[in-house]
Design a protein around this nucleic acid. Structure first.
Length: 573
DNA sequence: GCTATGGATAGCCTAGCATCCCAATGCTA
């Protein structure tokens, strides 16, 4: 449905219809972001229910109804007949928009990317009015990039590279500040492109350097205030050089999100100000712009952390000065989901411990897989006992040395299809804590999967549910579960839900976290490290928790170890 | 076509860059 409305928006733009394109675009986005299936909403509440979706009014609600009932949207088909082209395919080519698509179809009967590439390579585009050789070349290059492009990138893939580029830019003479904006600064799970802002006395030098970096495969644009490039592995990056007096305004503006900014600008207009990337203005006078804080303050709002700028209530909370005090990476006292590959790898457990101490943790929990996962060399009851002895030995060493550090002994057990655990309760009871997770048969019907996890939560030995929704970003959807029900039982039993910090998981997601916090379900941020370097995944988990408005009190590995163990020990069921 | 405001109507984000044509247009963020 979202795709149909998005295409309708493009068709309407081709006809130069005013305002409707934006309306359809907005509706498409709203539908895509919907948590519930639109068909379910319609079934329960009819047209009125659909109209409650922000961006959906009477007209679009009726078209959704039509689609649910007939599987078609007549208006869409009419538009498509008028201009039978693959709009979504063509607009995916950078530099091609509705006006160009229209000209291409009318003059050259170009319907899709294949036609376009053929015509461009044959030199037929340059002959069209308002076209030229350069535009033709640009389109050929865009098509080549499009074929290679991999879409969005995981934050775990981008942040390390971005930090390196930042360090390089800071070394250039005349550069005094470099910051990321956009989805990277909001720490979204996936990043579409890289937005970088800089202050420099010599913009030309920075732009020269930036566009000539070894990673740069293509330069879209290069000016004194803005340059845009594509890196060889497929992500685009923009660099803007900003005047110091506008830096805060630019940072605010380019950080977004778009929805957050739209609301903010409306607030500015209401106060008879104007907000743009150069500052907050009253008439021609700039009344704020150097930093973000003064802009938000002049608009009557607390400064909002970038991770929650999604227009999901943060602007309202900031007005009554009730913003949450988001958890910080420095609040983390330990990591309870670390694999040592015990029995397979003799050194890893020590490496993990060393890395944890170096990070400044007060404790680490070793939680290897249990016996059902043969492939990961899961431990059985006897092996767990032997592992316990080794951990006791290591702990007594710390005591002798009078070090505060402590190793906890846990495991990541498997929740079987019927909700039972793959290892005996006796063995589990001897551990400091137990994580349980689903690692098999993930395609169960919603009710069965929910019951399965609930049964595991009701096991008095199970303290933590790992990666509760099971999704793998860019690879696998979450399992079908009734999350509200899981939350209810988690609250009832005192079961802790994990925020798995592996950048491929980031599970729970931001919305899950917010829901859990609201109900009072406790969470834990774990790295799920299988190598010592992966302990650093914690950073992504903390970012995710922040996006879910989590505070220190909500996350049990911000607590001292005694309090944490007591919470695990006094589990209700 | 949607939303907000007030019950029918106004308003819908802004700006840099490339390109094509030499002042305007389209795309993108």
């Amino acid at each position: 449905m979202a795709k149909i409305f998005l295409e309708m928006a493009e068709f309407l733009a081709m006809r130069e219809t005013a305002f409707k394109p934006r309306a359809y675009e907005k509706a498409a986005q709203a539908i895509e972001e919907l948590k519930e299936d639109a068909a379910e909403i319609y079934q329960k509440e009819g047209l009125k229910g659909l109209e409650k979706i922000s961006g959906v009014g009477k007209g679009i609600a009726e078209r959704i109804e039509e689609f649910i009932k007939t599987g078609r949207v007549k208006d869409y088909e009419r538009l498509k007949k008028e201009m039978p082209v693959d709009v979504s395919g063509l607009t995916a080519v950078e530099g091609v928009g509705p006006k160009i698509i229209k000209a291409l179809y009318q003059k050259l009967k170009i319907k899709n990317i294949r036609d376009l590439e053929k015509a461009a390579r044959a030199g037929r585009l340059r002959k069209l009015p308002r076209f030229g050789e350069k535009l033709e070349q640009k389109i050929i290059k865009s098509i080549e990039f499009h074929k290679k492009s991999k879409g969005r990138f995981l934050i775990g893939e981008i942040l390390p590279l971005a930090n390196e580029i930042k360090a390089r830019l800071l070394k250039i003479k005349g550069v005094s500040q470099v910051e990321f904006a956009g989805s990277l600064r909001r720490r979204k799970e996936t990043i579409g492109d890289l937005d970088i802002l800089a202050i420099s006395k010599e913009p030309a030098k920075v732009m020269d350097y930036f566009t000539k970096m070894p990673e740069v495969a293509h330069i879209y644009a290069k000016g004194l205030t803005k340059s845009m490039v594509r890196f060889d592995f497929g992500i685009d990056a923009d660099l803007r050089v900003i005047a110091p007096e506008s830096f805060g305004a630019a940072l605010q503006y380019f950080t977004g999100s778009k929805d957050h900014n739209v609301v903010l600008r409306k607030i500015a207009v209401k106060k008879r100000y104007k907000l743009n990337e150069y500052g907050l203005w009253r008439g021609k006078k700039r009344i704020a712009g150097k930093n973000e804080e003064e802009i938000y303050e002049k608009l009557g709002r607390q400064l909002m952390p970038s991770e929650i700028r999604e227009n999901t209530g943060e602007i309202e909370a900031a007005q009554i000065r009730q913003l949450p005090r988001l958890i910080d990476i420095n609040d983390i006292k330990g990591d309870l989901h670390c694999h040592s590959h015990w029995g397979m790898d003799k050194k890893l457990i020590n490496e993990m411990i060393e890395a944890a101490i170096k990070t400044g943790y007060e404790y680490i929990g070793i939680s290897d897989h249990t016996k059902f996962l043969h492939i990961e060399h899961g431990l059985d009851e006897k092996q767990l006992i032997r592992q316990r002895k080794e951990i006791d030995k290591l702990n007594s060493k710390f005591q002798i040395l009078n070090k505060k550090f402590r190793i906890l002994h846990g495991c990541e057990a498997n929740i079987m299809a019927d909700g039972s655990i793959d290892i005996s309760d006796e063995a589990l009871a001897k551990l400091d804590y137990v994580i349980a997770g689903v690692h098999s048969q993930m395609k169960m019907p919603k009710e069965k999967m929910t019951e399965r996890i609930i049964r595991a939560m009701r096991n008095p030995n199970v303290d933590i549910i790992s990666h509760p929704t099971g999704r793998i970003l860019k690879q696998r959807d979450e399992y079908k579960i009734d999350f509200d029900k899981i939350l209810k039982i988690a609250k009832e039993t005192g079961t802790i839900l994990e925020i798995n910090a592996n950048p491929y998981r980031l599970d729970l997601n931001d919305q899950n976290i917010r829901q859990a916090k609201k109900i009072g379900v406790k969470m834990i941020i774990n790295s799920d490290a299988h190598r010592k370097e992966q302990l650093n995944f914690m950073e992504y988990g903390v970012a995710q928790a922040r996006r879910g408005w989590a505070e220190k009190e909500d996350i049990i590995n911000c607590w001292p170890v005694e309090k944490l163990l007591k919470f695990c020990f006094t589990k209700l069921f």
